[in-house]
Nucleic acid binder design. Structure first.
Lengths: 346, 346
DNA sequence: CTGTTAGCGCTTTCAT
DNA sequence: ATGAAAGCGCTAACAG
């Protein structure tokens, strides 16, 4: 393709560059014959409009910046996929920035200052690139208010919270409520929960859903059945051991993520408790590995694709200056597999 | 930030726009005092050069296009991470295109025509965006020669092959040889292999490594020990069953991916064969789930990050018109976990 | 050391 | 229905 521009096309088609521009953009009526001639030349010479020039003129790049805290963390690729899915339809492009946060600060999200500069730099470069807007993808749902300033550029946050901008999450409360409902429907009454770190928003939301189910289904509210984990498999293992030693152990465990559910499996295997016959387990996140475990565990699937899709939709609206409709939070979906069964009749 | 450009800066700093440009780019000596004044104004007004204008002028965008066949397939995020890691250092940016191939055509890679247009479109848009080069990330190593034309723009392929362009893979042969060596060192002699689809390049390469180890270590070459799988867990399961029914069953199995290794685990569990005590297993790919299985399986880790990093390095060289050094294929790394032990003494 | 100015490739107003 | 020409915000001769 090289260096052919609108000028070359105009010359070869015997029209002015303006006309070429008109047929290119459909901005004005062009005599069909002329139009076809131009189109043919464009085709022949394999001409592609120079987007840098267009952007300069139009003050619009049709490109958004996506800042991912870490593309290698499980939730991010699906969200990007959703963004992409929608961006394709809107003819938008994606400038991707990867903060590599997981490698750089691991899980120390509280040390905001250690990554604020990464984020601010990313925004700065994106702004320089004249993106029409920005989507920020978190790797852990938390409040990110005030992380950086976009100087008026539209931004939407996905998989995290913020007070002054649009942010997309999913319905954590409904998710754990649904998981509980499923267990209850199987006949379970003594259901234990292993939470994530309680300083995390999803942990608290999921606990709310758990609690709501306890109340609505009139289940025994037994503090011994509520264990605080830390998202890691080891905590699932340890707390399951404790649960199994109870005088009246639970017949089912709701683990707030699939990783801790692995710990439940390990503990059960070690003590010789059969899953799901003697103990049901349900996880959270629908991580890839959850279906490769033995037994394959039932889990709550996160609407990641939809979060990405909606984030892009909302951003497009923001860019056009239109109001964002108040969408309900997308729901999680129960994936039924082999780790849940009715409790053993006594 | 809005509409402040170099002109506003120049005015406020009492210099010409040229001078502003000079301090911005360090293209020419500027009197320190002037320089500082300009810098201060830039800072104050939070000015960011308009990249569209720069690109138009410089005929260089410092942006590369990355075409990912599918960002949700396991190998892709790590490769993107590697590209990013390197791109950051070179001050390059990434325009990401996601072909969503896994959703659109699943695994029917042979029907090239069904996705050629997706790929060609992606290239076309990237070219229009004036990217300096392109990296194409495959989701399955195969020959992609002639998939599309980049009209002279530099391109490098990652995780796939091509005959006329630079492409980055990893050393499959060494990987399976190393896996075998590890098994041999533990004392295994009767080692079975469960291959992937034999129309796939990695399958054949991995088989070569397996065969080389058989020869070099003088292991029995027993056709009964070589099973052709299809990458899926079910085939791992079925073939393991066959292997276990042999008069003289293997003491170790090399599965050509972790998914089939799951099948091995399931079969062993079903027949009551203890892993690793009675049967050792080693997988391939170091998929996330491999460390959550019970037992955690040993596996070969793919140098995905490095492939991405090298792809970016090579592309940068190509862009500068410099020759690509002939790097050796990056190696896979054995991840030792709990699925390998010395064979039972008879 | 600093300023003037001619484009980069396009869109769009204003003429015709 | 078409064209001429004025920029978009910047870089880089060229001139002083």
């Amino acid at each position: 393709m090289a260096d052919i521009g609108i000028k070359e096309i105009a010359a070869k088609a015997n029209v002015s560059i303006a006309t070429v521009s008109y047929v290119l953009n459909g901005t004005r009526n062009v005599r069909p014959k002329t139009r076809e001639r131009v189109l043919r030349v464009i085709e022949e010479m394999n001409y592609k409009p120079n987007n840098a020039a267009q952007s300069l003129k139009r003050k619009r790049t049709n490109t958004i910046g996506v800042i991912a805290e870490d593309v290698t963390v499980f939730n991010v690729p699906e969200i990007i996929d959703g963004i992409n899915d929608c961006a394709d339809k809107l003819d938008m492009h994606i400038l991707l920035t990867n903060l590599r946060l997981d490698k750089r600060i691991s899980r120390n999200f509280d040390q905001v200052d250690s990554y604020r500069s990464f984020a601010a730099n990313a925004v700065s470069e994106l702004l320089s690139k004249q993106v029409d807007g920005i989507i920020y993808i978190g790797i852990h749902p938390r409040d990110l208010t005030g992380l950086f300033d976009t100087y008026g550029k539209p931004i939407v946050y996905a998989y995290c919270y913020t007070q002054n901008d649009v942010s997309l999450q999913y319905n954590d409360e409904q998710a754990s409520y649904d998981a509980m409902a499923h267990l209850v429907k199987q006949g379970h009454k003594r259901i234990a929960v292993i939470t994530g770190m309680m300083d995390s928003i999803p942990s608290r939301l999921r606990f709310n859903g758990f609690y709501k189910a306890i109340m609505e289904y009139n289940l025994p509210f037994d503090p011994q059945l509520m264990k605080m984990g830390n998202w890691e498999a080891e905590s699932g293992y340890r707390l399951t051991m404790e649960l199994l030693e109870l005088n009246e152990p639970p017949t089912a465990i709701l683990a707030m993520n699939d990783v801790m559910a692995v710990g439940v499996l390990r503990a059960a295997a070690e003590v010789g408790v059969l899953i799901p016959r003697e103990l049901s387990v349900i996880g959270f996140d629908n991580r890839e590995f959850s279906e490769y475990l033995i037994p394959r565990i039932s889990t709550m699937d996160l609407p990641l694709h939809e979060i990405g899709y909606q984030a892009m939709e909302s951003l497009a609206l923001l860019i056009k200056g239109e109001p964002i409709p108040n969408n309900p939070l997308p729901n999680c979906k129960l994936i039924e597999r082999d780790s849940v069964a009715p409790p053993l009749r006594l």
